[in-house]
Simulated scan of single mutants.
Amino acid sequence: MKIKILSILCIIATLHIQCKEQKPSSAGADESDSISVEVFEFDKPIITEQYTADPSAHIFDGKMYIYPSHDYESGIPEDDLGNHFAMRDYHVYSMDSVGGKITDHGKVLDIDQVDWAHRQMWAPDAAEKDGMYYLYFPAKDKDDVFHIGVAVADNPAGPFKPESDYIEDSYSIDPSVFKDGGEYYMYFGGIWGGQLQWYRDNKFQGKRDVYPDDEKPALQPKIVKLAPDMKSFAEAPKDIAILDKDGELLKTLDNDRRFFEGAWVHKYKNTYYLSYSTGDTHNIVYATADNPYGPFTYQGKILNPVLGWTNHHSIVEQNGKWYLFYHDSCLSGGKTHLRSVKVAELKYNLDGTIQEMDKMVSVD
């Protein structure tokens, strides 16, 4: 694919960010075989052949693998439910280390392969167990209700073969899987278009947007232990309590701190870090706990707002350094549904708190 390279200035609020615009195809799914794309440059999109978002990054067999969603121009008008985010397939990308050449391993799963799925294959994640690899993904069924599916491969680059049905008792969006010792835990959930507000105590309440009152505790992300087969739940999903420093649950009206979507858990020096997006206030924030179930205590921001409506991230360590993978809309000139994956080094203070970032940081 011949890429046209232009320089543009992307502006959001008071942030002035220089980035390079390279027009990827937005026509739909790409059937290409495995190809190498341009060498990574810090603070710029790391994938420019197509639009990518919601990056889940993992180290498998010593190599960095990225599992993003795949944006394209759907032609659907923008709305608060995210119908214009009409993604329908997944690619897998890899690089030996951050800063190296990125390889696109091609399309590894398409919605036409998933019997139960109707539309909107949103942010995925992946996990490995006993030499098998599992791709977890949300999609809407024929009734436009989100569930979480799983597909399996014998290598991290796929292709992945989907199970015939979604995971029983799964709902909402943004699955992410965290391994702790020999156990695997899935975190999931998202409000507004993510439909978490349609459920109470894991029971579907109908297609009704019901939120707690402003002064009541906000809706919480979910955690569930995966069964040994990695294709089912070993228990009923549980709420993850997110508390303020006084030990009180974050409230619905606390838009700067309350959970919206994109939960991700990592462990650093025996502390569990739950990070997530605040959605309509556009922050990536984090809370900490001493076990994967929480409760988690809110600590602060990781990443301030980026260009575009959404932000969705992952955090991973490689060769002694920690990295934040995220996306923005700089490459598309600010189109909120055409996003591109970026990466920055994440740094901790001596007390274990995470240094706050203003969009772009220099990486040594």
Score class of each variant (00 low, 15 high):
228 P>R: 09
56 S>N: 11
127 A>E: 04
266 H>L: 09
168 E>F: 06
363 V>W: 04
35 I>E: 15
286 Y>T: 11
47 I>G: 03
348 Y>F: 15
181 G>M: 10
131 G>Q: 05
328 D>F: 00
143 D>P: 08
291 N>I: 13
237 P>N: 05
284 I>C: 09
61 D>N: 15
192 W>S: 09
35 I>M: 14
123 A>Q: 04
289 A>G: 13
327 H>E: 05
55 P>T: 12
29 A>L: 12
259 F>D: 00
91 H>N: 08
235 E>N: 10
95 M>L: 12
124 P>F: 01
272 Y>H: 14
24 P>W: 00
313 H>Y: 06
33 D>V: 08
161 K>Y: 14
1 M>E: 12
52 T>Q: 11
362 S>L: 10
318 Q>G: 09
178 F>C: 07
330 C>A: 08
241 A>C: 11
51 Y>V: 02
44 K>G: 06
163 E>H: 00
54 D>F: 09
14 T>M: 13
218 A>P: 03
127 A>W: 05
153 A>H: 11
11 I>P: 02
348 Y>K: 08
99 G>D: 06
69 S>C: 14
183 E>Y: 05
185 Y>V: 10
128 E>T: 11
232 S>G: 09
18 Q>E: 15
107 K>Q: 12
273 Y>V: 02
235 E>R: 08
363 V>P: 01
153 A>L: 11
151 A>E: 01
297 T>R: 06
114 V>N: 00
327 H>W: 03
243 L>P: 02
226 L>S: 00
208 R>I: 12
270 N>W: 11
159 P>E: 05
31 E>C: 11
118 H>I: 07
179 K>L: 09
272 Y>M: 14
257 R>S: 00
332 S>T: 00
27 A>S: 12
323 Y>K: 11
234 A>S: 12
157 A>E: 06
211 Y>W: 07
339 R>G: 04
309 W>C: 05
200 R>C: 07
92 V>T: 08
246 D>Q: 14
301 K>Y: 06
76 I>G: 01
91 H>D: 04
7 S>F: 15
150 V>C: 07
113 Q>L: 08
14 T>K: 14
287 A>Q: 03
137 F>V: 08
85 F>N: 01
62 G>Y: 07
141 D>N: 15
210 V>D: 15
298 Y>M: 10
341 V>L: 11
280 D>P: 12
346 L>K: 03
332 S>W: 02
221 P>N: 07
26 S>F: 08
227 A>S: 14
188 F>D: 00
81 L>G: 07
50 Q>F: 10
120 Q>T: 04
331 L>I: 07
199 Y>C: 08
250 L>Y: 04
71 D>C: 12
75 G>Q: 09
48 T>I: 12
208 R>K: 15
177 V>M: 10
131 G>F: 08
260 F>I: 01
216 K>V: 13
129 K>A: 08
42 F>M: 12
142 K>T: 15
284 I>R: 01
279 G>N: 10
190 G>M: 04
218 A>Y: 02
328 D>Q: 11
147 H>G: 01
53 A>V: 07
164 S>L: 13
56 S>Y: 05
145 V>Y: 03
160 F>P: 06
224 V>R: 00
50 Q>W: 06
41 E>L: 11
139 A>R: 01
149 G>S: 11
125 D>E: 12
296 F>Q: 03
264 W>S: 06
350 L>W: 07
256 D>P: 05
145 V>F: 00
14 T>D: 15
282 H>W: 10
186 M>Q: 02
211 Y>D: 10
187 Y>W: 10
255 N>W: 09
5 I>E: 15
361 V>G: 02
